[in-house]
């Protein structure tokens, strides 16, 4: 399923960029992440608990950042599997200088779930993904602005 959206932060682009690729910030802000370990350049393993629709479960997997073009854009891949099935996502994130010193983030990508969770939770997927992204950016913004 395709998802896309945007988020505007009241923070300078470089500051946003630094946070977005900082493992501690990702671990602290991506909802449900229980563990994030750096295993290589821009590659992390993680454990994450997510509820999609009626199915809540823990997924083990990895996060990869690629094509880093600071401070403008990068790609992010997330994949995890667990008892409820698997979750896969990939997307492009763009950071643009916003008006008044803010940063406009736009993202677009693909999310897929399969296995047991896939059959019952597909239609909730879009909503869940959007909510998690909002929470993620909201949290990053707070970390930068100290709000």
């Amino acid at each position: 399923m395709k998802i896309s959206g945007s988020y505007t932060m009241q923070a300078a682009r470089q500051a946003v960029w630094d946070k977005l690729i900082d493992p501690d910030a990702i671990a602290g802000c991506l909802p449900g992440v229980e563990e994030l370990t750096k295993v290589g350049d821009n590659e992390f393993t993680m454990a994450m608990t997510v509820g999609i629709g009626p199915v809540r479960g823990t997924y083990a997997g990895k996060v990869t950042l690629a094509n880093l073009n600071p401070p403008e854009s990068y790609e992010m891949q997330v994949e995890g599997s667990g008892r409820p099935g698997f979750v896969k996502g990939s997307g492009q994130i763009h950071l643009a200088q916003g008006v008044g010193g803010g940063t406009a983030i736009t993202y677009e990508g693909d999310v897929e779930v399969g296995g047991p969770v896939g059959s019952v939770a597909q239609r909730m997927l879009g909503g869940v993904a959007r909510r998690m992204i909002e929470q993620f950016f909201g949290c990053i913004e707070k970390q930068i602005t100290g709000g």
Partner: peptide, 11 residues
């Protein structure tokens, strides 16, 4: 990708 989106009686 071949995921059945209507995979339960909910859908």
């Amino acid at each position: 990708n071949g995921q059945l989106l209507t995979g339960s009686l909910m859908d």
